[in-house]
Amino acid sequence: MKLALLADVHANLEALEACLEHAAEQGATEVAFLGDLVGYGADPAAVLALVMARAEAGAVVVRGNHDAAVVASGAETMNKSAEAVVDWTRQQLAPPELAFLSGLPLVAKRDGICFVHASADRPADWTYLHDAVDAARSIGAARADWVFSGHVHQQALYHQAPAGHALAFKPVPGVVIPVPTRRPWLAVVGSVGQPRDGNTAACYALFDAGRATLTFHRVPYDWSVAAAKVRAAGLPEYLADRLERGE
């Protein structure tokens, strides 16, 4: 079974479609969404329509902080412009879509895998996994062979050493990495809809459960279309600039 892991789509339809197409070419038969389906981008309704259809077919979807903010009463944890985007997003969504976001779980577990947007350790706190110390905490709380998450927009892979601490690794895109189960692994798969490492290409990862391998991918997509939609929607200019620079 090949499972495509998609995090931080952020309402970027062009990036999502490019990743799904790439994953299908690579033989992916299943897909999991690791939170932050909306926020920042101009296509929340179209992205949700796509994700809801996949969820209907059995795809795992977990909640991200932006998803939570859209359906929460107040978005007090966000900065002002993010808050404006949250309000705008809420207006774009119909009741069934809002209900779908409300119903998303914080954590999902299946076949030895823990799916979570941020850290499996107190997931509602939306802790960023910045380093091996944060990763070790999430691994410790998840109690799974593999933890797949997003939130941090850069791709990273961690594994637990026998002494209990975690070791960080910066993956090279396209390399099939063995992730054998004798120790727990944690992968941050990178952002589909808002890459922030200076490379405009969308990020996702592909997990091969039968072989226990993980491949991080970068997929170029037409960001000019996504950026134009952000501007046309009247969303803050810097959100369009970010897509053009991948920052």
Partner: peptide, 10 residues
């Protein structure tokens, strides 16, 4: 170089 080093610090 392209795989996490299972023997590092082990």
């Amino acid at each position: 170089a392209h795989f996490p080093d299972l023997l590092a610090e082990e």
